[in-house]
Write a protein that binds this DNA or RNA. Structure first.
Lengths: 187, 187, 187, 187
DNA sequence: TATGAATGAGCATTCATTCAT
DNA sequence: AATGAATGAATGCTCATTCAT
């Protein structure tokens, strides 16, 4: 039931937004009553935190698997991370949107748990770029921190427009983005 | 007064979010009473629409100036647009955040006015990429629509992290992004 | 202007009700601004009182003309009063509806001016019935006070259903009612 | 509680009017808080509809009982209906006043449910008159529709003046009215 | 595990009214 | 004679939360 309620809530939060979704909406979507909600969650905010944790922990796990694979080059790892983020949209798109849009609604205490994890994800990419520079896979003059934000921006922004049902496949998008990042668009 | 209230509202919406900001918050920030708000705005949503229109119209105007300058190459125009978006953060950052985050709170009618404008901005960039391909400034095999989303993602995501008061200048960010896009990060 | 505003207000009060009509509605219907309203009326309630006074004074005047005509029998006077009330609907229907429905919205002081006038109208009819009994035009055993309420009920209720544009003429309605009252419906 | 709140609301609506009675007034009269009101009613208008339905359904039920009694003449049935309406004031007076005065505050949809019922009540009386004419209990030349409005006017208007605590009994009023209608006041 | 009744604070909005100009 | 800016109290309604059962 808790699981089911969380899933439904993610859908509702994605569609209507966290503040715009009432406990009433959530329990109606689950065919239960308000009391049931408070049996499983101590507050609406706690549910939001659950969703955040679940999303970022899963993301960090996947990222870790990629970067820890010593058989791959930095370039490949970069592609894999971008591909992971894009293909995530199909399965985790709603969670991702909630994660990026609704973080503001977490309380101080919860924020202080989430923000380091979000930063860790970014800094791992930054570390990958630095490693790539060192291994002469990437340009020496690259501003790694800013480039990292660029990579993240490209990938995360997809949540605003990418439709897994549409014409472009995840591979196509990930490939186009990685190509842009690696080779540039210059003729 | 209307002007002043709009400015204050943008700040509040950026900090707390649209739904989380009450009319009470807005009028207190302006030292007036609720009646005054409704003297100038017919609803909270109308104020949000005002903010959206102002932002996107200004953006389209700036974009138009850039792309209509026939003395510039496509590459330069691309840099100019990226720079414009980044440097916009200093003066228009709050508006931009409100624009990207709160669009969902507009009603159907207002959305149908804003979405075409937002699309127009994107399609103008896509047009610039296509023109660049034709003029052999950009790679022939570039997937222009996806690349456009990449460019926009990089630039728009800055609103989530770029701090104009911080170490990196707008030029630096814009230059790093343009370099990434043009030359790639490949060694 | 004051005249025009009063007329428009009567229409609005009839259609939407006194409480449901805002000063804003009234001034918009007159193409002026709120300030103008308060230049002519000291309050919304005062406007309502104006309408009440105007209506009841006119009614009393007409009634007086009828009962003071010594050439007429009591029966004829009764018919005349009923006809006057019914035909009033065409010209004064809106005022009448406002009068009967919205009296509750007058303040104590104003009520104490209106109620005696309304009672006077009724008591004049009661007096007419009593006079008719004495002159042996009406049944001796008639309960004049209750019968008066009956006559008033019939006539005043017309405001709830009588449509001057409809099939039945005022004469027809007044004639049917007077016949009912005088001869009854008994075979 | 819902029952209790409805009863209290009827009293308040009668005394102050629907629009002039706030939810605050209602909950204070019941010693509960606003939330409780909205737990039982989805809106103030819905409460009004409840009151309307309850009243008119009860009235139609009583009317039906009277007209379906084949042992009675049309005259007796007419008396019974008038008596029912007058004696109703003691038990249902407040509801009746709310019904007649506040119908305008129902929304379109609710009105379309109430109006046919109100018309049904009237048309049943009209049918009774027509039947009486046919059975030669009533005058052949009677204009049944208008006479019906006359009967209803007399009876319904009582809600504006009849005081069950006062000198005249319900029987007296009903008898006077029925006499007027049947025999007229003519000497 | 789950419900249903109740709370109380808060919200967007309306409105009659005031008043300097 | 009329305006336009502003007020402040009130209104209908929503909502996260509590708690006895």
């Amino acid at each position: 039931m808790k699981e089911k309620m969380t899933e439904q809530s993610i859908k509702l939060f994605e569609k209507k937004g966290f503040s715009e979704t009432s406990i009433q909406d959530i329990v109606e979507a689950n065919g239960v009553t308000k009391g049931t909600f408070y049996y499983y969650f101590s507050s609406k905010e706690e549910l939001l935190m659950d969703i955040h944790l679940r999303y970022i922990d899963d993301l960090l796990l996947n990222q870790e698997k990629i970067v820890n694979d010593d058989s791959k080059s930095c370039k490949t790892k970069l592609y894999d991370i971008i591909y992971m983020l894009i293909s995530n949209i199909k399965t985790q798109g709603a969670s991702a949107k909630v994660f990026f849009r609704e973080m503001r609604n977490l309380n101080e205490e919860h924020l202080s748990e989430i923000i380091p994890k979000r930063d860790q994800f970014r800094l791992t990419i930054e570390g990958l770029l630095l490693e790539g520079i060192e291994k002469e896979e990437f340009r020496k003059d690259l501003n790694a921190p800013i480039a990292t934000f660029g990579v993240l921006g490209m990938a995360n922004w997809s949540y605003q427009w990418y439709n897994p049902e549409g014409a472009a496949s995840e591979e196509e998008v990930a490939r186009t983005f990685t190509d842009m990042i690696l080779k540039g668009i210059d003729q």
